[in-house]
Design a binder for these strands. Sequence first.
DNA 1: ATAACATATGCTTAAAAACACATATGTTAA
DNA 2: TTAACATATGTGTTTTTAAGCATATGTTAT
Lengths: 117, 117
Amino acid sequence: MLKPMVMDKQIEIFKALSDATRLKIVWLLTNIDEKICVSEIVEVLDEHQYNVSRHLKILKKVKLVEEVKEGKWVFYYLTPIQSEFRKLIQDAIKLIPESKMQNEINKCKILLGKRDQ
Amino acid sequence: MLKPMVMDKQIEIFKALSDATRLKIVWLLTNIDEKICVSEIVEVLDEHQYNVSRHLKILKKVKLVEEVKEGKWVFYYLTPIQSEFRKLIQDAIKLIPESKMQNEINKCKILLGKRDQ
DNA sequence: ATAACATATGCTTAAAAACACATATGTTAA
DNA sequence: TTAACATATGTGTTTTTAAGCATATGTTAT
């Protein structure tokens, strides 16, 4: 007899955000306000491609991110806010200061700049 | 060479909240707005005493709760909000509907009522 | 068709987290 | 001082999660 699953959705959200790589991904998406593809995340966060892919899968499962395929790339973006809970969590993440992510921010800006060239 | 620890505090908060027992404890404390002792939590959540103790230790470590000893009891309560981040997280938890915790709420009300008798 | 690139996933291992049971510590009451 | 109660913790076990490596899948360009 399993315990009743209560607050499941919220727990899954917290769990998804309790890993450094995943929180960084969500933080990035929150702050750049743009779609970003897997290889860009790999470069910005300096993680292995297979790990980034796996973490994205987890974020997708709890509906924090969505994906859109464009040619050989897969772009990820924040799932549009659909609940007050999500909104508050997202606001909290937005509060995490840029200073904690300065390296990543810089790399990301350079990358996003290169896109248009 | 270790990776730099970034967003550590926030990750630890999310991790602390990513377990059902711990989230229930924080939810309870958020909603009853009262100190509550270990054995009351044990009864309300129907968990083993040793697990509740351990989970409380984890919540205390990340400063989500504080304790005060009164005789043979140890009462726990939410650490007063000291950051905007904490505030938003706390607001999010407050949004989790009572309906998901009806059993626990009922037990808790009965318990708190008995205190004064 | 083949090579190069982008992403995802199967499989194994390693590390972390949760649990269970016994027991220790500390407090109050008899 | 002994018993009963409340809480915490040491230890071993199981479960879950993350990482690493190889490789599969799918797309574009030659």
